[in-house]
């Protein structure tokens, strides 16, 4: 897998195409695995798309007592294996980003797996392939780094110089704004 997922939350227009696309995916049982939510509904109508980060050391897999959450060779964190998942929901509480969903009816957890059957062939996942405002994109790593660099530059141009201890405030992890 040479490409990366790139999210720009401000670009989200709240159309929920990504969720519709996710539902369409075979094997998803017409249930979406991503989220589109309001940042702060009482202040503005800004929405954001939310997918799984595919952590290198996933907390969800670490808190699973049945060892049901597996990681592919490409590093994609999969949904809990249906045969092992005992339905305790530990993963939904352990995940720092609140990603895994739980189906009480069928007693199993399901989560975004970055459409690994598509992305391993460098095809964009369902959500990224339909996003009309490029809030979710599936791009080359180099392109992502370029977008990040440009954001840093724009911050500097505006005279917002980060000091030693708060660089992260100016360059959030893979996150860019001016990406025309």
């Amino acid at each position: 897998m040479k490409k990366v997922m790139y999210l720009e939350f401000e670009r989200c227009i709240g159309c929920r195409s990504c969720q519709a696309a996710c539902r369409e995916c075979g094997g998803h049982d017409s249930k979406e695995r991503n989220y589109v939510e309001y940042v702060n509904f009482f202040e503005n109508r800004q929405t954001y798309p939310m997918l799984c980060m595919q952590c290198k050391d996933p907390a969800c897999a670490r808190v699973c007592p049945a060892n049901a959450i597996q990681i592919t060779d490409d590093g994609v964190v999969l949904s809990a294996m249906e045969e092992k998942c005992i339905g305790c929901r530990n993963c939904t509480f352990g995940c720092p980003f609140g990603i895994p969903k739980f189906d009480f009816e069928e007693n199993k957890m399901y989560k975004c797996d970055m459409c690994y059957d598509r992305t391993k062939h460098d095809i964009a996942p369902m959500c990224a392939s339909v996003c009309p405002s490029d809030a979710i994109r599936f791009i080359d790593h180099d392109e992502m780094m370029e977008l990040r660099r440009r954001r840093t530059q724009m911050n500097l141009i505006e005279g917002k110089k980060p000091s030693e201890n708060d660089k992260w405030q100016y360059v959030p992890e893979f996150f860019g704004v001016y990406s025309d």
């Binding site: 939350f9 939310m50 995940c95 720092p96 980003f97 959030p172 996150f175």
Partner: peptide
């Protein structure tokens, strides 16, 4: 979970 998603977005 919803609040955790919000925390992630806000920090980014």
């Amino acid at each position: 979970t919803a609040c955790r998603r919000k925390i992630r977005v806000m920090s980014q």
